[in-house]
Design a protein around this nucleic acid. Structure first.
Length: 275
DNA sequence: AATAGCAGCAACCGCTATCGA
DNA sequence: ATCGATAGCGGTTGCTGCTAT
């Protein structure tokens, strides 16, 4: 009958992942591919539940992820798709290669909502906010003050399409798999190699925040270097080259065809850095 | 310089659809 | 056909760093 219970949560670690845990998970998935998540923590030597491992992998460790803020184009895509699909973040994410549902959801809640409100658009309905509503939402007035500091004028024009967009979500809240731009929402768009290209984390000029996610990966790599026995073979290395080389040295075949994180790419000749 | 408040993001929680015995 | 486990999804929380006072 059925399957084994997912995981008893007794003794399992929670909270932020350490670089060591990340490395274990990356190594395991590179070696075995994405198989039964329930078995992953045990096999990888992690005190996490499978769910946590899956989340960490899909939202953070996957090599095909883009890091950093969404571009203006991506933002516009999110808004347009949200107008049609609602809060179906995974569907929206499937249209934006290298972006995760969690990332898009966060960006929506922290950036896009504010921008739309500032433009007088209700982020829920994508309809213009009435002036009456505005007066009854003092927190939005406060919000505007904040937004005024960061709002870029050209962004406003890029969002105009949401004003005139047909609102399928309102008329058909459960509308599924709307065809947009010629492909089904269930299809994950093929990623072009250039789409996975992430600039090296050079000393940041665009962001003053040290916690900027675009730099997070290099911080992770720096942490990795501190592990006993962990040697960086390159001056300017990337973790995926390293891990791939590591596995190759052991003679461990990588399952590229099924669920390898580098699925679809010729790993021996990647012309770009994954991180 | 200290600190309170805010913003951003990673991770967790709980629900549901799907799958397998 | 049924029941229970799993994977995936969306909502929410909590931590960390930044900014304003």
């Amino acid at each position: 009958m059925g399957r084994q219970p997912c995981c008893d949560k007794v003794g399992l670690k929670k909270g932020p992942w350490t670089a060591e845990e990340d490395k274990k998970l990356i190594n395991f998935i590179l070696t075995n591919g994405q198989c039964c998540w329930r078995a992953v923590p045990k096999l990888a030597g992690l005190l996490r539940c499978g769910k946590s491992c899956r989340l960490r992998w899909t939202n953070y460790l996957r090599p095909d992820l883009k890091r950093g803020l969404l571009s203006e184009f991506e933002e516009k895509m999110v808004i347009d798709l949200h107008a049609q699909l609602g809060n179906r973040w995974s569907k929206i994410a499937s249209r934006l290669p290298g972006r995760t549902d969690n990332e898009i959801k966060n960006h929506w809640n922290t950036h896009i909502k504010k921008k739309l409100r500032k433009m007088g658009i209700d982020p829920l309905t994508h309809k213009p906010l009435s002036t009456a509503e505005e007066h009854h939402r003092p927190q939005q007035q406060d919000q505007k003050k904040q937004d005024d500091k960061t709002m870029e004028p050209e962004t406003s024009s890029s969002l105009n399409s949401t004003m005139s967009k047909p609102k399928e979500e309102e008329d058909h809240p459960m509308v599924k798999d709307v065809d947009i731009n010629g492909f089904c929402t269930d299809e994950v768009p093929l990623m072009e190699p250039h789409e996975t290209l992430v600039p090296n984390c050079a000393p940041s000029t665009s962001s003053s925040s040290p916690s900027s996610s675009s730099c997070h990966s290099s911080m992770f790599l720096e942490e990795l270097q501190q592990f006993p026995g962990f040697e960086c073979p390159f001056d300017d290395f990337n973790i995926w080259d390293l891990l791939i080389n590591e596995e190759s040295d052991k003679g461990i075949p990588l399952d590229h065809s099924l669920s390898s994180p580098l699925m679809g790419f010729d790993q021996g000749s990647l012309p770009y850095e994954l991180f």
